[in-house]
Design a protein around this nucleic acid. Structure first.
Lengths: 140, 140
DNA sequence: GTCAGTGCAAACCCTTTGCAGAAAG
DNA sequence: CTTTCTGCAAAGGGTTTGCACTGAC
């Protein structure tokens, strides 16, 4: 297995949010705790369920707003592989994904295992923001 | 410019559908004609609008069903880059995309310009179905 | 005549928004 | 005290579904 260390230890979460200019409220910290517990890929729905395993419940709107905020501020990365939902990845370093279309599961690709040769330069007047490589797999 | 030849000439469309086991009905042919007119990336909504520039109108449900059918049968490729809509690409050969997050526009990457080095082997019990490389760009 | 395809409208589901109340600084 | 965040419920928007009608073979 690779990368099983939590992307951000619980005791650093508050500082981590502040560094990015995010006010660390109760709800945001609880959401961050779930996201950064370990390397994983959660949908908004899953985050909502995990956060609300303990009372008091956090509302759906707050979870969606917070995930959007974290992504905009660069704390987490949105992974778009399924038209029906977005996944959130606490690992913001460049890396790629396997997407199992049968199970709907997202897995990190060992960065060592890919050599993503030369990239094309973006069209005139645009700049590259990021590169997503998604390897679609199915149960063989 | 690259790849401006229609992916499938109009007169071959009917045969093309039959080869894939798709009954070429009036509506399906009209949808295919729009998709295969030239290399492009259309959303379901755009296909609907283009098809219905001439009467009689094709219903929304038929467009969605047909696009799903074509994709399942391998005539076109679904490109998932935006959580809010799916794009359909008549070019089913392996190739990659620029996605302009400002304009929501999808562009083909010149295949010559990318060298997609070594790919990792898929996890045990799975087979690779395809690889999507999406280069997210924004207006610089 | 039988089976598949089509059209319409309603249902679905993830996500976003509006607004009043609560909490942070 | 001011500004920001939260919660609720309702709205939004792309996509899917149910079912009766039509058309293909």
């Amino acid at each position: 297995m690779l990368g099983n260390a939590p992307p951000c230890p619980p005791e650093r979460l508050e500082a981590h949010l502040r560094e990015r200019g995010i006010l660390p409220t109760r709800q945001r910290l609880r959401i961050a705790r779930v996201l950064f517990a370990k390397p994983q890929h959660l949908s908004a729905e899953q985050v909502l369920a995990l956060v609300n395993r303990e009372a008091p419940p956090v509302s759906k709107a707050t979870v969606y707003n917070t995930l959007g905020l974290f992504a905009r501020k660069g704390l987490i990365r949105e992974v778009i592989v399924d038209p029906s939902k977005v996944f959130y990845d606490p690992n913001t370093r460049p890396h790629h994904h396997f997407y199992n279309v049968d199970t709907g599961t997202l897995t990190d690709v060992d960065p060592e295992a890919v050599s993503l040769g030369r990239l094309p330069s973006p069209p005139e007047g645009t700049v590259t923001e990021g590169v997503d490589v998604i390897i679609r797999i199915r149960n063989g």
